[in-house]
Design a protein around this nucleic acid. Sequence first.
RNA 1: GUCCCAGUAGCUCAGUUGGAUAGAGCAACGGUCUUCUAAACCGUUGGUCGGGGGUUCGAAUCCCUCCUGGGACGCCA
Length: 556
Amino acid sequence: MNALERMQEQLKEEIKQAVLNAGLADESQIPEVVLEVPREKAHGDFATNMAMQLTRIARKNPREIATQIVEGIDRQKAHIKEIEVAGPGFINFFIDRSYLTDVLREIEAAGEQYGRTDTGKGEKVLVEFVSANPTGSLHLGHARGAAIGDVLCNVMDAAGYDVTREYYINDAGNQIRMMALSLEARYLEALGQEAEFPEDGYRGQDIIDIGKKLAEEEGDRLVSMEREERLAFLREYGLKQLLDKIKRDLEKYRVTFDNWFSETSLYESGAVDEVVKILTERGETFEKDGALWLKSSQYGDDKDRVLVKQDGTNTYLTPDIAYHRNKYERGFDRIINIFGADHHGYIPRMRAAMEALGYDPDKMTFLITQMVKLYQGGELVKMSKRTGKAVTLVDLMEEVGVDATRYIFAMRSPDAHLDFDMDLAVSQSNENPVFYVQYAHARINSVFRQAEEKGIQLKKDPTHLSALQEEQEFDLLQKLGEFPGEVATAADHMQPHRVVRYLYDLATQLHSYYNAHRVIGDDPTLTQARLTLLSAVAQVLKNGLSLIGVHAPKQM
RNA sequence: GUCCCAGUAGCUCAGUUGGAUAGAGCAACGGUCUUCUAAACCGUUGGUCGGGGGUUCGAAUCCCUCCUGGGACGCCA
């Protein structure tokens, strides 16, 4: 807990005691004390709405209640300089802001650890994301999901959750057979033979390339094989090539996973058959039209779902249920699934399935990422599944860069539709938020280079800090103090974009301060104090950028 | 038709989970470099928070209803 948070906690306690002592409410009635940072600076550093919340309990008008609370607060203890009752009954607190310089010492001491908290209490969390089928390259939607998932994991990790990142590989279904068929056609084409391309085949460039590669490596050896033998070979070969490619691309994108969970492994272990058996034993299934159905409509789903088809094979849902059961069995406290909006219909049926198995469906949460529209040259870039023409993650990394791509995907709320303007993302101008934040970091480092040239050493002497008296300096201190709480809130609400927003605001304050005040000046004490402040800002920018997986350059 | 997401300044989006006079970037207009990086800063203009009802001290935020845009509604995955 840092200086700012300690201050808030003490103040909350003071408020609570004042309410109790004044007899406005008893222990059981008193609502949780809420402190907020008012939008208007004139309304103080913190404000509470306690008086308004107590109107019904205390049966007095809020301003009267507020006055009574104010009288009971020990200002010394809570580092309060001034208190006022305002508006309909707000109590505004003006803190002794010089106390905030403690934040600098804490940042200095914590270094890269500053921002980490234990609010998650080591809760075991599984986050499954990307999980793209190994039938082609990662496209735009995966890129967004990967960025949001990775940043969420980083943020939750920093907030003290025990996070496991997982990628589910759909390597067993129909789509893999289709991949093999598509690859077969591409392979034969590469050998100059006639080949009919399957109607619903995957037309991406990647499979064409793999077909060529295979032809080079194996020649026409596969042509003489039995059809099924050949397809089995193609399936293994294509799967490996495609998965390796996905792993490589994600690594370049700075996204790594703890587990790559294979669907096939669920078949091999018998987990798929087992889950069908369990559901049936629990009386959660029924037979109709020669198929086996799950009674999912009893658990809030629109309709019942087929588990085993007429032909005896499973639907996609069955192994997925086995997979999610496996997640529960591994003992996670929270199971987070990040999906694209096109799969949101899947949520009620999976919740239903888990409930049918006797698990608590509320342990499982779904984060839905909305669609991305890509603009280039002011025009919408069209995607076509039919022709396999789509902008891929690799394209974005090459044309926009990893920093900007990750930043832009992470900056928006996951459930907002996103317009990705490629021209803006690459522009080296003030329109580009990525550079704006990175520049703030580089700028500070530039000041340190200047200081070094002038032979100024940063002494870590806390007695210098009282030289910080400017309004903007206190604002910066307060902002720095808010960082750990901001990360924790982002984690608790699964809103990674809040961290990006915070960084942008911090960068704005830094730029503004930089333009208004000289850091290196004639007064050595003041210079030292300001250098210490800047050093802390740089540290927080760096820590924050690291959470979103973006570099913090020392020079631009 | 049913379900999910969204609708806030000309454009792209925030909005501390119900708080005080709704914010930022871009665009438009006007300023700031002989001094630590002007990829920056300062100022001005710009709003029936999609419409209408309701809940209460108080609503962009919660409830109902309607409108618009996007997505999903297979024994495909």
